[in-house]
Design a binder for these strands. Structure first.
Length: 263
DNA sequence: TCGCTTGTTGATGG
DNA sequence: GCCATCAACAAGCG
């Protein structure tokens, strides 16, 4: 589930739950989510450390402490939960931090596609995140032109490539392109100025609403709200939507509203 | 049993 | 260098 809006919600969870608090104990229920760090070292290096203000880049959550920095990625099924230490832990809790005020911050993930890293330095952090484009939330109109210049791939593949723009996943990609009325397979080098305007506006609008909701809304006036219908129809024109596998992901679009040629 | 799933990475070939 | 495709990672669901 986690795309930019979900991770932004996790950032807020971490800030309200853990910022300014000390880790009394780090627990590792499943070392299968640890990346480049052993359970022993994670526990040792975080014990007694105090969480500072967390930040987010794309789908990455970066949680500095007064010691090392905890780096989290949520894959397709991860989430971050805060509760009282006395509450029962979730079935998929893999790592948890017991804090000095009795709260517990839990990293839960059913599928373990991504996980938890520990960075000692800025160089470590850069190596963990890899090449990241600018965060989608701070993308201005000129950035978009710069990013698309010289590329010739399909617009959806480009938009959801984290090294081009960070934070957009499969659902957001489809939602933004539907709102901008651009076909997902349009080569980016054929987009007109008017289309890039629409793309930028749609990105801002979709992200603003999604971040507020803490997820990509699945309301009926959103494309995402129609995804799981057996015979989905376009929220805008009510004609049948198309569904196909594009660059390895299930893609939903309206063949009537989303033009596959400049326009 | 098979196919499907909102994440990323790396190999391969054009 | 860019791009598309595929396999792999892991676990659950229908």
């Amino acid at each position: 589930m986690p795309e930019l809006p979900d991770v932004e919600g996790f950032r807020r969870t971490l800030a309200s739950c853990a910022q300014g608090h000390r880790v009394e104990r780090a627990e590792v229920a499943d070392p299968g989510v640890l990346r480049g760090v052993t359970a022993q070292r994670l526990k040792r290096e975080l014990k007694g450390r105090r969480f500072a203000a967390p930040r987010r880049h794309g789908k990455w959550l970066i949680a500095p402490t007064d010691g090392p920095t905890v780096v989290l990625h949520f894959g397709m099924t991860g989430r971050l939960v805060c509760g009282a230490e006395s509450e029962p832990v979730g079935r998929f809790e893999r790592v948890a931090f017991d804090l000095d005020d009795g709260h517990r911050l839990g990293y839960e993930d059913q599928r373990k596609l991504q996980g938890v890293w520990l960075a000692a330095t800025d160089a470590d952090l850069d190596a963990i995140l890899g090449e990241q484009g600018p965060d989608a939330l701070s993308l201005d109109r000129a950035d978009l032109d710069r990013l698309l210049a010289g590329r010739r791939g399909g617009v959806k593949a480009t938009l959801t490539d984290q090294s081009v723009v960070a934070g957009l996943g499969n659902l957001l990609g489809d939602e933004i392109l539907w709102r901008a009325r651009i076909h997902p397979q349009r080569p980016v080098n054929t987009l007109t100025g008017a289309e890039r305007d629409r793309l930028h506006t749609a990105t801002r609008e979709v992200l603003r609403a999604s971040v507020r909701a803490g997820r990509v809304p699945d309301e009926p006036d959103w494309l995402t709200g129609r995804r799981d219908a057996p015979d989905p129809h376009c929220p805008r024109c009510d004609r049948p939507l198309s569904r196909a596998r594009i660059t390895g992901r299930t893609t939903l679009w309206c063949p009537h509203c989303q033009e596959n040629r400049p326009g």
